[in-house]
Amino acid sequence: METTALEIHDLTVAFSRKPVLWNVDAKLPAGKLIGIIGPNGAGKSTLIKAIMGIVPLSSGYVKIFGQELNAVRRRVSYVPQRESVDWDFPVSVMDVTLMGRYAHVGMFKKLRKADYDIAYDALRKMGMEAFANRQIAQLSGGQQQRTFLARALAQQADLYLMDEPFAGVDAATEKAVITLLREMTEQGKTVIVVHHNLQSAAQYFDCLLLLNTRLIACGPVADVFTPENLQDTYGGKLTLLTDVANLMRKENYPVREAQLQKE
């Protein structure tokens, strides 16, 4: 088994030239439950979108299990933020869960009977089997989140990247989900979770990645969950860094010099 699930090397991501992540450099261990912590606008969601290749990288690279993302796509599963989709969309809970199987059957091949079994099993693990045929428009917030997690489970990946799975869910769902994530890491899966609640962070996770545009700290909870680190993470942005970022946007200045010469 690999010891490093995810290597982020010198990663910078910019939106219309303004860097929102700046030289992030981290190695995340396999088989652990890892929390990404930081204030609003710290770039937490952007970080996992960059890892999944959903937003373009301005510089740096990401390696998953020592390989390029495209070589290991099937072993990685992404859970977007619940609010990122329209829950009035005309599909059922089962339809959404089966999307997790598309990673394996592709765009055109028919879903096999086994795919339905796996999707149903994922729903059962999330306590959603009774809702399989329910329209997603009729779900509560917690049930929507469970459906998203069931879809990820149906993907049968080794690395899971989850964007705020605890946002706006009921206490029962939060408890059920954290128990499940624990079980998954015990089976050797790596689970990376964007989390906003500082109080439960230390108790839920094995490792933490503290982020506020730049990387503050990354490591086992006992080592990095310190008052100094939290002060750095939440104690406001670095004013100079923000000013420089804004200037880059204003001047339409690229993240790397080479890109300027190319243009």
């Binding site: 979108k49 999944m52 290749g53 959903i54 495209n70 599963s77 977007p80 990122s84 989709v85 999307m99």
Partner: peptide, 16 residues
């Protein structure tokens, strides 16, 4: 088409 209409980021994450 359905997947992209519902959840484009997820479709991208699957490598489509």
């Amino acid at each position: 088409f359905i997947l992209m209409a519902f959840d484009r980021d997820y479709a991208r994450s699957l490598g489509f």
